[in-house]
Design a protein around this nucleic acid. Structure first.
Length: 152
DNA sequence: GCCAACGTTGGC
DNA sequence: GCCAACGTTGGC
């Protein structure tokens, strides 16, 4: 059982989109970074906790809680020439990009980035590290507990 | 294998 | 729109 922070652009997939999806579940498509892929492929397990983070938007921050509900499988968008996430170098025999399904747990009052930064308990959070660009980052159990119990 | 050039992320 | 930081690409 692990914990993660996963960034999504709310224009594309917000916490409300997740809540409205069939089975309140969405495949985490579009990750095209090897480190983030490896987290999904190698480290995630069913039942892992997810902090659902809105990025590249007027109010970046944690917008809800979700959970991992599948093992890793190939991201279908990599095979679709019409998709912005198409990868011509990936084949069905040896797919390059893997993803997991994520299910809605609850929407929370937005916890803005600045509020996360204001807490010394969260100073080591990977997502807050200078220069971090990873869209999926590990969250420690202490960080998870602090955020879910104190901030949301 | 090096590394310069280029592309992307994402907060501001 | 700016730009810091980082990842990827490709020539050599």
């Amino acid at each position: 059982m692990r914990y993660w922070l996963m960034k999504s652009e709310p224009d594309e997939a917000s916490i409300d989109h997740l809540a409205a999806a069939p089975k309140r579940t969405l495949p985490w498509t579009g990750v095209r970074n090897y480190q983030a892929r490896n987290f999904m492929r190698d480290m995630m397990g069913i039942g892992d906790g997810v902090l659902f983070y809105h990025s590249s938007c007027p109010e970046p921050g944690i917008a809800g809680i979700a959970e991992v509900v599948s093992g890793p499988y190939p991201d279908p968008t990599q095979f679709d020439p019409k998709s912005p996430y198409y990868d011509a170098k990936s084949t069905r025999e040896t797919p390059r990009w893997m993803l997991v399904d994520v299910r809605f747990v609850k929407k929370t009052p937005l916890v803005p980035l600045a509020r996360l930064r204001a807490h010394p308990e969260l100073a080591q959070m990977r997502v807050l590290a200078k220069g971090n660009r990873l869209s999926i980052t590990p969250v420690t159990e202490d960080e998870w507990r602090f955020i879910t119990k104190q901030l949301t």
